[in-house]
Design a protein around this nucleic acid. Structure first.
Length: 587
DNA sequence: GCCGTTTTCGGCCCGACTGTTTTCAGTCG
């Protein structure tokens, strides 16, 4: 049982305890540990076998025993008994907006409701409104919540959320009553999946701004509207929250609403250690509950707030309580990659396989975008579904690219297409093209496109064997995940990273919004091992060049700098780097 | 259930909004 599975069970235990009406701090203890585990960069089996669980903050004796039982036996008696003691449907009921553990408990105990269908029926019969603590409006909201849940998912791709949020942010920025504004929350932290979109505005006239926000085009419904806060549902069912504060409060509120929760807790603790009190309204020279402006430690910006707590400015992407405090204290935060530092993508497709555009179109577009190079890495022959290239066609493509590049050289244009392939990693780690052909290519990306159901050991071995091939430059989309659509295939990513470190193989950070793979949580480890990253678009049409920005955002989240990322190099030094693994050093 | 320059008990982040209540509980972020 891996850490994600363990974490999921701990979350469920916490939730079940809440439904039972247990001490809320006890339930929170389980949820806290679950979150800690999710962000663990080390396999949990190793920690358990080396008896180091107790060293992790938040894990005491009781939870330590439970995790050990889960990891070593694959099950947990305590959990199974707890689960059997309550109907399964109660957990589903909790996902209805507006329903928390207390209300679900009441519905179960007073009306015997154990699932969504029963709940909807009880609402329609007016039984819910008659309960103590419930009423007509609550009943109505529950009905709408069930409907909403059926229609929309509550998790969204970062790219979808950005597309909706950025125009709204522009609109807000232009409103005369808006002094400063920003996105906040997981969107600002660049999480690959977001639940909602948060906006923060400073203004002297909150009512105007709230009114403006709730009447913007593209808003499906208004869920809440108060003096300083509003919630709406955007197209696609994404919820958006707006908070309006005074301009003096803005930096504090921005930090607060950007989170993460874990990051905020440490910030607050640092304030307390300095005899201060931090909340969304300010940093106060008092431990009493107050918003007295006389006690406010004035900060114009987030930078100043961090500095008051003896920290260097922590970019939003790093605010996950993943070591940023230690680094910020020592002024040792990396200067993170900027997406404009990327000079091109090394994994892309053309209409020779399953892409849309011709080589010529791609060259023109990418040159105009300001790229220095763009690799064409169409699929190899086994990827029938993607119109993979037979060796003869690939050789033909090399000639076409050579003549295209010749024309660019003649016109003294500083842009080149690079030749390449995204070669399939077949079963047992053999590659779909032989070494002789691979050797002729500028760039070789090796990826898995088949055999997703193999065991973790088999898949790991396949990837390691591919990394060991001297003609392979990088491994593509390491886990094959499609966010919100397909689970990653089982692979020991740490073992693959170790193999890449030994062989000098790079790992791709695939910028496609559905992939964003390898996951940002693993780059810290890869970087420590000295493995280089390549931020790629996996473009199938030239609009996908925008994925460079998404990929770069994930690289930032993984603490990567310009020097950690191969495709920040100029064409000349990239060529040298590409040849280095092969030990060929052509001129 | 966890934790400790408040250390083995008594805290645990905290404020806005909603709907229910007639002063507050539940939910959410």
């Amino acid at each position: 049982m891996n850490k994600d599975q363990v974490a999921q069970i701990l979350v469920e235990i916490g939730t079940l305890l809440e439904l039972k009406g247990e001490n809320p701090f006890k339930t929170r203890a389980y949820l806290n540990v679950a979150r800690t585990l999710e962000s663990l960069s080390e396999p949990i089996e190793r920690i358990v076998s080396e008896n180091r669980l107790g060293e992790i903050k938040g894990i005491g004796e009781a939870i330590q025993k439970k995790i050990t039982e889960l990891v070593t036996t694959g099950r947990l008696e305590y959990y199974e008994e707890l689960k059997a003691s309550l109907p399964e449907g109660l957990l589903v009921m909790l996902t209805v907006p507006g329903l928390g553990p207390k209300k679900v408990k009441a519905l179960y105990e007073k009306l015997g409701i154990t699932g969504l269908d029963e709940l909807e029926m009880a609402c329609n019969e007016g039984k819910v409104a008659a309960l103590d603590g419930f009423g007509e409006k609550t009943q109505q909201k529950i009905c709408e919540g069930i409907q909403f849940r059926r229609t929309y998912a509550s998790r969204h791709l970062l790219s979808d959320a950005l597309l909706l949020a950025e125009p709204i942010l522009d609109d807000l920025r232009q409103h005369p009553d808006v002094i400063r504004c920003s996105t906040a929350g997981s969107l600002r932290r660049f999480k690959e999946i977001v639940g909602d979109v948060d906006f923060l505005v400073s203004s002297k006239n909150p009512a105007e701004v709230i009114e403006y926000f709730t009447t913007l085009p593209g808003i499906l419904s208004i869920s809440a509207k108060g003096d300083t806060k509003a919630s709406v549902v955007l197209e696609g069912g994404i919820q958006a929250d707006l908070r309006v504060v005074t301009d003096a409060e803005f930096p504090f509120a921005l930090a607060y609403f950007t989170g993460s929760k874990e990051h905020n807790i440490v910030m607050r603790q640092r304030a307390i250690q300095r005899g201060l009190r931090l909340n969304e309204y300010g940093l106060f020279k008092s431990d009493a509950e107050t918003r007295d402006p006389a006690l406010l430690v004035t900060c114009q910006t987030e930078e100043e707030l961090f500095s008051r707590l003896d920290l260097a400015y922590v970019p939003p992407e790093l605010r996950e309580d993943q070591g940023e405090f230690l680094a910020a204290e020592q002024n040792d935060l990396p200067r993170l990659l900027e997406w404009t530092e990327l000079k091109g993508s090394l994994h892309n497709h053309s209409n020779w396989s399953d892409g849309r555009n011709s080589l010529e179109e791609i060259a023109t577009q990418m040159r105009e975008l300001g790229c220095a190079y763009w690799a064409i890495t169409d699929h190899s022959k086994s990827s029938f579904q993607a119109n993979g290239l037979q060796p003869e066609r690939l050789l033909q493509q090399l000639q076409e690219i050579a003549s295209l590049n010749q024309r660019l050289a003649d016109e003294e244009i500083d842009f080149r297409l690079l030749t390449g392939t995204e070669v399939d990693i077949l079963n047992e780690g053999r590659l779909d093209f032989d070494d002789e052909l691979l050797q002729k290519l500028d760039v070789v990306v090796a990826s898995i496109h088949q055999g997703f159901t193999q065991s973790e050991a088999e898949t790991t071995k396949r990837l390691i064997r591919a990394a060991e091939n001297p003609f392979v430059h990088m491994l593509g989309h390491l886990t094959g995940r499609l966010l919100l659509e397909r689970e990653p295939y089982k692979v020991n990513q740490h073992a693959v990273i170790d193999a890449c470190a030994e062989t000098g193989t790079w790992i791709e950070l695939n910028g496609s919004p559905l992939r964003l793979d390898m996951d940002w949580r693993l780059w810290h480890y890869a970087k420590e091992k000295g493995v280089k990253c390549v931020v790629n678009c996996d473009a199938h049409r030239f609009e996908h060049a925008g994925y460079l920005r998404l990929g770069a955002g994930m690289a930032r989240k993984g603490w990567l700098t310009k020097t950690d990322v191969v495709n920040t190099q100029s064409l000349d030094s990239l060529r040298l780097a590409l040849q280095k693994k092969r030990g060929l050093r052509r001129s």
